[in-house]
Design a protein around this nucleic acid. Structure first.
Lengths: 337, 337
DNA sequence: CTGTTAGCGCCTTCAA
DNA sequence: TTGAAGGCGCTAACAG
């Protein structure tokens, strides 16, 4: 390892400015009484040396980092991307920084577990958990030890506040929309609950609503939203359904592609609905009928609640349920006569 | 602030296990000689207390964190999302963790600057800079002080390695495709170079190639790829162009929407090309003709090079140019007769 | 207003 | 194989 230039410390600045290290510490942070002259000397020296405070050493003594740790699932999904966006915004305004760790790929759960530990070891002031698959038992040891907010799923339990979208409401709204249009045979791609609690919840709500209305819900279970094409290939033909309800917008695109290849007109011969309404896919060109999740708001809200917990101490834990909104597109219409 | 349970330290474990704190340190990290009996006692105590090493204190003495810092632009763009994905993967396998900070929103540059400082203060072992707008002068102070790799743009300068996509090649390939189809009047939405160097480079390459082929490049400058609709609204009518080249897939969607509203058939009356080929938008349903950036590979490669620099010391700095690939869709075809 | 002094939690010699 | 002691960079009392 080649020798790198030494990283300057307050001692170097102290020497450079001809004062004591405590004077430097005070001047640099604008705390305590420092004379203008000293402050200026110190600041100049710091600039000259390219000084950046060692957050480690700082945190070691203050036990505050002004960092918020976030454990996320695959950023590749627009929902998570917008979530970060919202968190970032809110944190920024409150003087906190957001440190993110992603758990993608096969080892998702294991990754999330490690991410959690890393963030804790990094002494973040609080944690936002947005990786739906992180088992509660992994979280328990840290509850009470530091403020935690769960984003994206309803989490009960002392010491945890959670913010999430009302998935069931979204599922019901979409189902109502199709029922109002006159559909009586509706296929729902029901997502495995182990894969995603919220995707399961929204699709289950769709089924429930359709059945409550006396129509027929064709329940087509899928392990996750990436298996849409497979499910349709296997079950669509001869099923007699006039509408397809997908767990996500991504799945809806796959459904649309399936129908396009089969030369089935949308929405004339078959309607399609998605879920998410975020990102590029929300472009009007696609015109997908979907339900928009308030991802950015969830993020903002999660950070807001977290900072409240950090600063005001153990606040009352809450369940915050945010509503999304229907997005009416061109992929849904009345069933064929 | 309510009293929270004390966070256990090695001293607590030492007491719990009835050994000295140095024994604990050695046992926990599997370094140095420790008797199996001691190791077991220590590990049991650590588990019981829910011990997580304080990375701050650790780093303070070892000056290694095994963390890689990443400064990113808006994660909401699929390119960045896939970049993280790749970085994550590579880092994982090498025993490093990726700590991300995003600079979104209006204050992008200022944010990026702060993100950089935060990551440095967090004592990351190395830095990947993927926020195209971070000015070089902000980076200079840290070059030489720690390993740095720039991802996504060609960056020259001692002490910096950069990995990027050959944007010009992509722009040329797309232009060639349209020229081969017979187009002679092609509009190119030329992105401002201040907004994005790489978006500028790719669109400039398109213009260059079109002109080199003796065809007419209709250059329509846009401040960024979000102003596609405006530009088209203003300039499309009566321009006589038979193809539209967009700086990104997102912009291409806007263009498609413009044409759809104007009732202009794609590709019969007008072809459209994008750039990126990542994420949901790459779904075959859309069938966009585009150029796929190797975002994940850029990420992997950046981390790989960074870790090499970290571990093998000041390695030779390099410029690594990765190639993307053409994606032929249904939005391009021969010009109208 | 300024300098001195003790640690924060951990790793790392050095002796035992 | 183990324990004691020093110090990483910084802040926070405490004297001057």
């Amino acid at each position: 390892m080649a020798a790198r230039p030494k990283v300057p410390t307050i001692l170097d600045i102290a020497a450079e400015a001809g004062v004591s290290k405590s004077a430097v510490s005070r001047a640099l942070r604008g705390q305590g009484e420092v004379s203008p002259a000293t402050r200026e000397k110190v600041e100049a020296a710091a600039r000259r040396l390219g000084y950046v405070a060692n957050a480690m050493a700082q945190a070691l003594v203050t036990s505050r980092t002004m960092n918020i740790g976030v454990v996320l699932r695959d950023v590749t999904r627009p929902y998570y991307a917008w979530l970060i966006n919202g968190m970032q915004q809110e944190a920024e305004g409150r003087g906190y920084r957001v440190v993110t760790m992603t758990s993608a790929g096969e080892l998702e759960v294991e990754d999330a577990r490690r991410a959690l530990a890393t963030l804790v070891s990094l002494q973040v002031d609080g944690l936002v958990l947005a990786s739906a698959r992180l088992p509660s038992e992994d979280v328990v040891p840290f509850v009470g030890r530091m403020p935690i907010v769960v984003a994206g799923r309803r989490e009960i339990g002392a010491g945890i506040t959670s913010v999430f979208c009302d998935d069931a409401d979204g599922g019901r709204s979409l189902a109502d929309h199709l029922l109002d249009l006159g559909h009586r045979d509706i296929a729902v791609l029901l997502v495995d609950r182990d894969y995603s609690l919220s995707q399961h919840a929204r699709t289950a709500a769709m089924v429930e609503r359709i059945e409550a209305a006396g129509a027929t819900a064709h329940v087509w279970p899928v392990p996750d939203d990436n298996h849409t094409l497979d499910a349709l290939t296997e079950r669509f033909d001869g099923s007699g359904v006039t509408a397809l309800m997908c767990p996500t917008d991504t799945a809806a695109l796959d459904a649309l592609e399936f129908l396009r290849r089969a030369d089935i007109a949308v929405p004339e011969a078959c309607s399609v609905t998605g879920f998410d309404g975020l990102g590029q896919i929300a472009n009007p060109y696609i015109g997908l009928t979907t339900f928009r999740q308030p991802a950015a708001e969830i993020g903002r809200s999660a950070v807001e609640l977290l900072i409240d917990k950090i600063e005001r101490g153990r606040a009352q834990d809450r369940l915050v349920e945010l509503r999304g909104e229907m997005v009416l597109g061109r992929t849904s219409g009345p069933p064929p006569a």
